[in-house]
């Protein structure tokens, strides 16, 4: 489904991603861990099409197509979804209003008719229930005045409504209490299927108790320094990242 080949990305003249290689097949869940500032969010944003990062080398093949030339909305219409580490507050636009515009933009892309207000309402009520999001929040401006947990749940709620093929979750678990964490995990697991894939960026093994990954990768200084199975997350939790950084420095990085 997704193949990242030798991806290099710059911002303001600094190289942040220094040759990422990663293959994600349909049906898989991959977890990306790594120290602060190693480039995890950069990778997530580049996948979603953020143009403040300049891709200087490499390619991103998604469903057999190099998507580097596609705009963020085109990528979204092709099924890529990013749950933001720091969801943006947008005053003046209510979540339900904007989400309906989003759903209809995607339906238009697929050649389907626009959903009317009633059908749309049915869907969002159902999905809000799934992630236990108070529907009152949906008539408020996007994320404005939402608590940290509400913002994250709003991301998962949007994911549930938009049903992406490839979901990228950037630290959706950070700052969540255990109940909220379970809700997020349930949202992801409900969507899990043989046609979809998920990339989960996290610092904490805890989330992975609920969403069991097929692969765990460690990103260090813009490169994937180490990859393994779900047990790698436990090892990282116990030992930290230092031993892997040493690996990198010794040129012993293992690419997936």
């Amino acid at each position: 489904m997704l193949e990242i080949r030798n991806l290099h990305a710059h911002v303001d003249g600094h190289e942040i991603l220094k040759g990422i290689n990663l293959t994600v097949n349909a049906g898989e869940v991959h977890s990306i861990m790594g120290p602060n500032g190693s480039g995890k969010s950069t990778l997530a944003q580049v996948l979603a099409g953020r143009d403040t990062y300049e891709v200087t080398e490499g390619e991103i093949i998604y469903k057999g197509q190099n998507i580097l030339e596609l705009s963020p909305d085109e990528r979204a219409c092709e099924g890529i979804f990013l749950a933001f580490q720091y969801p943006v507050e947008i005053p003046g636009v209510t979540t339900s209003y904007f989400l309906r515009a989003a759903v209809n933009a995607m339906r238009k892309h697929r050649g389907e008719e626009a959903l009317d207000a009633m059908d749309f309402l049915k869907i969002i009520k159902e999905k809000a229930k799934l992630v236990k999001l108070d529907t009152k929040l949906l008539s408020r401006a996007i994320n404005e005045g939402f608590s940290g947990g509400e913002k994250k749940r709003n991301e998962i709620f949007q994911m549930a409504v938009l049903e992406p093929t490839l979901a990228i979750l950037d630290e959706t678990d950070s700052g969540l209490d255990i109940d909220a964490l379970k809700i997020v995990a349930e949202g992801v697991n409900t969507l899990r299927s043989k046609d979809r894939a998920t990339i989960i960026v996290t610092h904490y093994q805890r989330l992975l108790d609920y969403i069991v990954p097929d692969f765990v990768h460690v990103l260090v200084d813009g490169k994937i320094a180490h990859s393994g199975g779900k047990e790698l997350a436990l090892e990282l939790e116990a030992k930290g990242y230092a031993w892997i950084s040493d690996d990198v420095n010794n040129g012993a990085a293992v690419a997936s």
Binding site: A48, S71, P72, D73, P87, V88, A105
Partner: peptide, 13 residues
């Protein structure tokens, strides 16, 4: 940032 957020939800620029 707001623009990018909306675009990642499928809304064209």
């Amino acid at each position: 940032d707001e623009l990018f957020y909306l675009q990642t939800r499928g809304i064209n620029e």
